[in-house]
Nucleic acid binder design. Structure first.
Length: 471
RNA sequence: GGUCCGUUCGUCUAUCGGUUAGGACACCAGGUUUUCAACCUGGGAAGAGGGGUUCAACUCCCCUACGGACUGCCA
């Protein structure tokens, strides 16, 4: 059922409303749509649902685009503005009127509200049935009206969902939804259907908060004689406590995750695997995800965000990425986190050190912390913990080491030999020697191995730093 | 209230009637070690509850409990 008809290419879309940042759940929805389309040589479209003029802002649209771009989700063609298509929506509403599939309702919002309050007080169904449903045109007053769908009152509407299976709704539980507001603008319910149809969308993959809407939207498709797309309602993401994701859970916007220093590939991997599975595969790249992704393998229960696992996956992606790609993404992270940009010298150093940095960091802040030895310049300012390693005795040893290093062959083997001999000469293990060395070289206690640091910064710089620390 | 959806280790999940219910993250213990990370070995840890159907149920059906969504001239 998730398979499109033969010869019909897949068309998916992501249709956020521009009222804020790109929510992490929205990012995942976009990712699923993108994966499904891209994995099948299909088309992935982007539509901004900006019909709510009060809440829609261009800033929000820009933020959504940035979030998608960061995740690497590229869309085909121009971004569609739903608002710009309002005339088309109104045309369809009138077409429904002409077909007898809709009717004009002259009830005011106050009247409807009064009905609802009364119904609730009497514990009756709050389902509003307009008295204008079967009224003839002759009785119509010259007053503002909305156009309501004339939904079937009997029988049932069945939707076939690629994730949820077959879901049946009794028609008498569905009201006559408003399609066109009294000001002539379309409601969401009408606009999505018209746009999805006009854009040729074959698969609607969206949050399962829309599952109920699918039934009513199906009615519009049927009223217009249009082919109903394949539905795929995916469960929403929850916070670690199982509750709906909200501010108190921390980062909500996709861009916040970038600012936190998670690599995009790791983010995509984690988000894809959250609520979807392909056997025991946990770690995969985008190409694999595109090849493997399919609708039936999406879980039906909401999944909780697990930052520990996100970090683990991200660590593996950092380790697997190329040095150049990592440096490039690091620049993006620094900008997103509003941290100072790297100088050219720092970038060069980082690139040379990347080999010993990338397999020991799970996030970019962590990587930068460990890269301090190559980012900082002399004199190295030791932090509190590493300053403790530079007691007088240790400084003496560093001093004694300097002449040996001056004549040393600058390879790991040779350095290893020198340091081991020195440590042994003082009657202690290499670890005892590494601590002050690390402090002198990096001014930090968390760094790559001392050999890697010496190799990366070179002989002259190493000796200078040791002298600085010994002084 | 009504309609609809969901429920396997702490978490993400595998299983699609027959398995000692598997993997990953996390956790615990041990090992390795030059800090952090990584790595190696081992360990504890699950089918919400109750009824059916069946030779056999985590898997199919029903009920209950719990969680969630929707119930706007928001999207």
């Amino acid at each position: 059922m998730s398979l499109p008809p033969p010869n019909k290419p897949v068309v998916t879309r992501f249709a956020p409303s521009p009222t804020g940042y790109l929510h992490i759940g929205g990012g995942r929805t976009a990712l699923f749509n993108w994966l499904f389309a891209r994995g099948r040589g299909g088309t992935f479209l982007l539509r901004i649902e900006d019909t709510d003029r009060e809440r829609s802002t261009p800033e929000a649209t820009a933020a959504i685009l940035r979030g998608l771009t960061w995740l690497g989700l590229d869309w085909d063609g121009e971004v569609v503005s739903q608002f710009a298509r309002k005339d088309r929506h109104a045309d369809v509403a009138r077409e429904m009127l002409a077909r007898g599939a809709a009717y004009k309702c002259f009830c005011t919002q106050d009247e409807i509200e009064a009905f609802r309050v009364a119904a609730e007080a009497e514990k009756r169904s709050t389902l509003f049935i307009s008295p204008w449903r079967d009224a003839g045109p002759a009785t119509h007053p010259g007053a503002p009206y909305v156009i309501r769908m004339k939904a079937p009152r009997t029988g049932q509407t069945v939707i076939t969902d690629a994730v949820q299976g077959t879901v049946t709704f009794r028609n008498d539980g569905l009201d006559d939804m408003i399609c066109l507001r009294s000001d002539g603008t379309p409601t969401y319910m009408l606009a999505v259907v018209v746009d999805d149809h006009d854009m040729g969308v074959t698969h609607v993959i969206r949050g399962d908060d829309h599952l109920n809407n699918a039934a009513r939207q199906t009615m519009i498709y049927q009223a217009m004689g249009w082919a109903v797309p394949v539905w795929a309602h995916i469960p929403l993401i929850h916070g670690p406590d199982g509750k709906k994701l909200s501010k108190r859970h921390g980062a909500l916007g996709v861009e916040e995750y970038q600012a936190l220093g998670y690599p995009a590939a790791g983010m995509c991997n984690y988000l894809t695997r959250l609520g979807w599975s392909h056997g025991d595969d946990e770690f995969f790249n985008t190409d694999q995800a595109k090849a493997w992704f399919d609708l039936p393998a999406i879980g039906r229960a909401p999944a909780r965000l697990d930052f520990k696992k996100l970090e683990h996956i991200c660590g593996m992606h950092i380790a697997a990425a190329s040095d150049a790609a990592l440096l490039h993404e690091l620049h993006g992270y620094l900008a997103a986190a509003q941290r100072p940009a790297l100088t050219e010298t720092q970038s060069d150093g980082l690139l040379r050190a990347m080999y010993c940095l990338k397999d020991r960091a799970k996030t970019f802040p962590e990587l930068i912390e460990k890269a301090h030895f190559v980012l900082a310049s002399r004199p190295i300012q030791p932090d509190e913990a590493s300053a403790k390693m530079l007691d007088p005795a240790s400084r003496g040893i560093l001093q004694e080491l300097t002449p040996q290093l001056q004549t040393a062959l600058w390879t790991k083997e040779s350095l290893e030999a020198i340091l081991n001999v020195t440590a042994a000469a003082h009657g202690f293990g290499f670890g005892k020697l590494a601590a002050p060395l690390r402090a002198a070289l990096a001014g930090r206690t968390v760094t790559p191995s001392v050999y890697d640091m010496m190799l990366v910064i070179g002989q002259n710089e190493t000796i200078s730093r040791l002298k600085d620390a010994a002084a």
